[in-house]
Amino acid sequence: MSTVHKHVEESQVTISQLMLPSHTNFSGKIHGGYILSLMDQIAFACASKHSKNYCVTASVDTVNFLSPIEVGELVTMKASVNYVGRTSMIIGIRVEAENIHTGVKKHCNSSYFTMVAKDDDGNNVGVPGLILDSKIEIRRFLKSAHRLKIKKNRQNDFKASEFKVEKHLHELKDQNVTVSFNSKE
């Protein structure tokens, strides 16, 4: 583990980009894939700034598209290191769109990218720790740590080699499914 620690604001990154007609999907709104691409770029910039190394995206959690983004709106993305492990970081990203004529802003998306620092040979490399200076930074760190714990538990609960169908069949009772599986097969 790295002995260096950095303040959260030292690695924060903000980008703004005007949304153009070339960024639209078939319904005339800004394509979600385009927004995800921008989010991946800012997550890379934030993680690389924090670690001073090349970083790769390991996972993306909780991508909720809350409001559509229109052509002509100014999209601003803010990225911050919310959590650090030994070689990985969770980057929190907030996406807002502003109608540049009215000044009205809307929250469009929040997401969490897990980024891993790499050395020149592609090996994982340690990242600096965080200095948490505020209640919101502590909350974000603990929320990310909690999310990681839940994710690991969920992976263990449904591990293919240990999954017992009979243990979980009752969970399907109120779902929109029909089970034609015979547990005696």
Rank of each mutant, 00 (worst) to 15 (best):
T24K: 06
K151S: 10
V125R: 10
V177P: 06
S2I: 05
H170Y: 15
P21M: 15
I138K: 13
V104H: 11
Q12K: 13
R140D: 08
A117D: 11
T76G: 13
K52F: 14
N25R: 09
D61A: 06
F181S: 00
T24G: 05
L169K: 02
T14F: 08
Q12H: 14
S11I: 04
I136M: 04
G126P: 14
P128F: 07
K105M: 13
V127Y: 03
K118P: 11
Q155V: 09
R154F: 14
G129P: 06
I138C: 09
N176K: 13
S22K: 12
R139H: 15
P21C: 08
D174K: 09
D40K: 03
V125T: 14
G129S: 03
A58M: 03
N124C: 00
K6R: 10
E171C: 10
K152H: 13
L169W: 02
S51G: 06
D121Q: 11
M77H: 03
R154H: 15
K105G: 02
D40N: 09
G126N: 08
N176D: 15
K105T: 08
A45C: 03
E137Q: 11
S27T: 03
G129R: 03
D121W: 06
K152S: 14
A97G: 07
I30S: 00
M39Q: 07
H50F: 10
N109W: 03
T14Y: 00
S134M: 12
N53E: 08
E10L: 06
I90Y: 09
K6F: 07
I131K: 13
D121N: 12
V104A: 03
G103F: 01
V8D: 01
L20N: 11
R86H: 12
T3D: 09
G103L: 10
C108P: 02
F158I: 05
M115C: 09
G33F: 10
H107Q: 09
N53L: 10
H101Q: 14
D121A: 12
H23M: 00
S59Y: 03
P21S: 13
T24W: 08
S27P: 01
F141V: 10
Y83S: 04
V165H: 09
G72V: 12
V4I: 15
K167Q: 15
N153K: 08
K118H: 13
K135Q: 12
S48H: 01
N53A: 08
I138E: 14
K49N: 05
G92A: 14
M77L: 10
S88T: 12
K52I: 10
Y34D: 01
E98I: 07
H146I: 01
A79W: 10
